[in-house]
């Protein structure tokens, strides 16, 4: 039993706290698939308020996981969010860790 706990703890420790947060993982997923994504699109897809999304983006930008580009299109102010190499890697690692964790626990159960 203690061995099992130890194994699971090993898998959970491989999860990245910064990315593991569900909303941030969602932002990285959308940006990974979409390339350059507008702030409004992220807000709509994740069902967040502007302030909430801004906070998450600030954290991800500070960690170098996303790139934020502010500008104008005509008279309309737009904020575009795009991925960085570190962001793509972090997302890939996180998804792999989660898959490995699920596979491991299912292995214990069977």
């Amino acid at each position: 039993m203690s061995d099992t706990r130890h194994d699971v703890a090993e898998f959970t420790s491989s999860l990245n706290d910064l990315v593991h947060q569900r909303t941030r993982l969602g932002i990285l997923t959308i940006v990974q698939e979409g390339g350059k994504v507008d702030f409004g699109y992220l807000q709509d897809a994740l069902g967040l308020t502007g302030g909430n999304l801004s906070q998450h983006l600030t954290v991800l930008q500070a960690a170098g996981l996303v790139h934020i580009d502010k500008g104008y299109e005509g008279k309309r102010a737009r904020t575009w969010v795009s991925k960085t190499k570190a962001g793509s890697r972090a997302l890939r690692d996180e998804v792999s860790a989660l898959k490995a964790l699920v596979a491991h626990i299912e292995g214990i159960g069977s």
Partner: peptide
Amino acid sequence: MTNLLTLEAEDVLSSVDALRRRV
């Protein structure tokens, strides 16, 4: 504990997949 972890991980993976499909 392990069941909860599995459920949470599966739920997160399913959300990631759904967001990917949406984009």
